[in-house]
């Protein structure tokens, strides 16, 4: 009998096709068995309720509210990105400050060795440059003596001529082409 209940429930709540003979047997069981009969009635009523339950609509202006929500979400995301960038920059600046402080603070404790090293470096640089400067002066003087005086007249004239040619070329060729473009 319990097996019949189970079979009946399987049949009642299933969408699968049941062989004709089985359907007949189960229909007979429904008439005989009170609990299965009641369950069958209950299910028919539930199915009716589900089939006739309406599809509900949201309050008017749903799309506009969605668009506002989308815009708000974008704004919020933008704000979060800005805050993240700000925090990253502040973090970077703080790291730089800490690192440079770690390098500078020892100098403040004892700056004299640092200052003396720099003075020594500058003095060495000055002595090297004065040696090279003397050698360059001697070289220029000897070269000047070798060049004939006419060269010193011809050089500025040639440079002036080259400048004039360049100006003319620039004006006539390059500027006119730019206008055409």
């Amino acid at each position: 009998m319990a097996n019949d209940h189970q079979l009946f429930e399987e049949w009642l709540f299933s969408d699968e096709d049941t062989p004709h003979d089985d359907v007949k047997t189960l229909e007979e069981h429904r008439i005989v068995c009170d609990s299965c009969g009641q369950l069958s009635v209950a299910w028919t009523e539930v199915e009716n309720e589900l089939q006739f339950a309406p599809t509900l609509s949201p309050a008017p202006g749903f799309t506009e509210r969605w668009q506002m929500r989308l815009a708000f979400g974008r704004h919020k995301r933008q704000q979060q990105q800005n805050i993240a960038i700000l925090l990253l920059s502040a973090g970077g600046a703080a790291t730089l400050l800490i690192v440079s402080s770690l390098l500078i603070i020892p100098l403040f404790k004892s700056p004299w060795p640092f200052i003396l090293a720099w003075i020594y470096q500058l003095a060495s640089l000055y002595s090297i440059s004065s040696v090279y400067g003397g050698a360059l002066t001697v070289l220029i003087r000897s070269v000047v003596k070798l060049i004939p005086p006419i060269f010193w007249v011809a050089l500025p004239v040639a440079l002036g001529a080259l400048l004039v040619i360049w100006l003319l070329f620039y004006q006539k060729v390059l500027l006119s082409r730019r206008i055409m473009l």
Binding site: L12, F13, S14, L39, W43
Partner: peptide, 11 residues
């Protein structure tokens, strides 16, 4: 299947 049975019994 389980949901249908549960709903019918609840009903």
């Amino acid at each position: 299947h389980r949901a249908r049975r549960s709903m019918a019994q609840k009903w």
